[in-house]
């Protein structure tokens, strides 16, 4: 209860700072009320939804591919000690590469359009999910694997009833980071060389110096991203506490 109050207090402080910044540089920044009004008029306009749907579609596909691919890589390597040791520094250095530099390669492979955005979102999200899943499996207590052997579980049963449940809290932590980065990847993909989607809407507004549209689009994206992230964070805490 006290925490909810503190969060509201913090949000109010943020809004006041935003309003003050708006008063200082009015032409660079729309006021909070102005942004909310613009966001509402965008939500009720017909032009907004095709862009939102395009971004949503690219994001959902990219996230699904990142989760499936990341779990396959992470669980596969985690179960193989040598494989994990060989792959870890490679995965970490891929994780820290500025992936924007690879975007031209993806555009040349997939051409302009939805597949390129999906691929670009996926390469952002897949690595953190894989790293977290791999380390979670490596850190599982050996006694779990011994029990699985004693009970003569098949490989499939071991994976489904021992490995995945045991590694679940860490997998959710990885998903949370993967979620954020996949969204970022899809949006950057749309900001460069795209004709549709929310990223394009922002780029177009930057070109026209249409500040209210930029701010309103960011506000809507922020609300979606922060709420999704809060749900995953809550799940993350719950799972970690259940185990501990």
């Amino acid at each position: 209860m006290k925490r909810t109050f503190d969060i509201v207090l913090l949000l109010t402080g943020g809004l006041v700072a935003w309003e003050l910044l708006h008063l200082a540089v009015p032409f660079a920044l729309t006021s909070p009320a102005g942004t909310a009004a613009k966001a509402w008029s965008m939500l009720t306009s017909a032009q907004f939804w095709p862009h939102a749907a395009e971004t949503g579609k690219a994001f959902v596909y990219a996230l699904l591919l990142a989760i499936l691919g990341g779990l396959a890589i992470g669980l596969g390597l985690g179960l193989n000690r040598t494989g994990a040791e060989v792959a870890e520094p490679i995965l970490v250095s891929i994780y820290s590469l500025p992936k924007v530099t690879l975007y031209p390669l993806i555009l040349l492979i997939f051409g302009l359009g939805l597949p390129a955005k999906i691929a670009f979102g996926t390469i952002h999200g897949i690595i953190p999910i894989a790293i977290f899943a791999m380390n979670a499996v490596r850190n599982l207590a050996n006694v779990h694997f011994k029990t699985a052997r004693v009970l003569r579980l098949s490989r499939r049963q071991t994976l489904l009833t021992v490995v995945i449940p045991g590694a679940l809290p860490e997998i959710v932590s990885g998903l949370r980071i993967g979620f954020s980065l996949t969204l970022l990847g899809v949006l950057i993909g749309e900001m460069f060389a795209s004709q549709r989607g929310l990223g394009f809407l922002i780029m177009n507004a930057i070109g026209l110096h249409d500040v209210p549209t930029i701010m309103a689009t960011i506000l809507l994206l922020a609300v979606v991203a922060v709420s999704a992230s809060a749900i995953l964070l809550w799940l993350d805490h719950r799972l970690h506490h259940r185990v501990a």
Binding site: R3, L10, A28, L187, M191, I202, I218, A228, S229
Partner: peptide
Amino acid sequence: AIDPFLASYYALPFFAFYPL
């Protein structure tokens, strides 16, 4: 109070703040 905001920070497209 600030924890959930920090945790979801990287989902924001900062590049859009460039004009500002």
